[in-house]
Amino acid sequence: MTALPILTAEEQRVLGCLLEKEVTVPASYPLTLNALRTACNQSSSREPVVDYDERQVQDAVRALKDRGLVRVTWMDYGKRTLKYSQAAVEVLDLPDDERALLTVLLLRGAQAPGELKTRTDRLHGFGGRDEVEAVLQRMAQRDEPLVRQLERKPGQQDNRWIHLLGDVPAEVGPAVAVDREQVLTDGVEARDEALIAAYDALADLEPDPMPTTAFEDWFITHVAELAGPHQTADVGCGLGDTTLLLAEAGALPTGFDLSPRMVEQARERNLDVEFQVGDFRKLLRPGNDAGWGAILAWYAFIHLAPSEFAAVVKHLAQTLLPDGVLAFAVHVGNAVEPVTRWQGEEVAVPLVLHDPAEVRRAVAAAGLKAQSFLVSDDEGPDRLYLIAQPE
Rank of each mutant, 00 (worst) to 15 (best):
A233G: 02
E225L: 11
D130K: 04
Q318I: 05
G78M: 00
G293Y: 02
H331F: 07
R138K: 15
E151Y: 09
E379I: 10
L384E: 05
A134Y: 07
L239W: 00
L64P: 00
D59M: 13
A364R: 14
L19V: 03
A170G: 12
L150H: 08
A27V: 12
Q276D: 15
L146H: 07
Q276G: 11
R99A: 06
A233C: 04
Q182A: 13
R71N: 15
A3H: 14
A370P: 00
G324L: 09
S44I: 06
L374M: 06
V332R: 00
E98M: 11
D53N: 15
L304F: 05
Q12T: 11
G125E: 14
A327F: 02
E268T: 12
H230P: 00
L123K: 00
D167A: 12
V25S: 13
Q137R: 14
G344C: 01
W74M: 11
G166R: 02
A329Y: 00
L94N: 10
F126G: 03
R46P: 09
V178S: 00
W161P: 03
Q182I: 15
Q42C: 11
T81H: 06
A177M: 09
P209D: 10
E22K: 14
D234S: 00
Q111R: 15
L195R: 08
D76R: 13
L384Q: 05
T2E: 14
I220W: 03
R67D: 15
P322R: 07
D382N: 14
R119Y: 10
T213E: 11
E98V: 03
V50Y: 11
F256A: 10
P209I: 02
Q156Y: 01
R148I: 08
D66L: 10
E133R: 11
R108Y: 01
L386G: 05
Y29W: 11
Q42V: 07
T243V: 08
T8M: 06
G278Q: 04
A190C: 07
G250W: 00
R341G: 05
A60M: 08
T24C: 05
T8G: 10
R80L: 15
V375P: 08
D217I: 06
S85H: 03
A366Q: 04
M1N: 10
G278M: 05
A140R: 04
A140Q: 05
P207S: 06
H230A: 12
E274G: 01
R142D: 11
E345F: 03
E189W: 07
L284V: 15
K117A: 13
V349P: 03
Q231I: 04
I295P: 04
Y29D: 09
A290E: 14
P145L: 09
C40L: 09
T120I: 04
P145A: 09
T73N: 13
Q371L: 12
A140W: 02
E216F: 01
L107T: 04
I162Q: 10
A201T: 02
P253M: 02
E115D: 12
W342V: 10
R129K: 13
R55T: 15
G240I: 00
I6G: 13
E189P: 04
V57L: 12
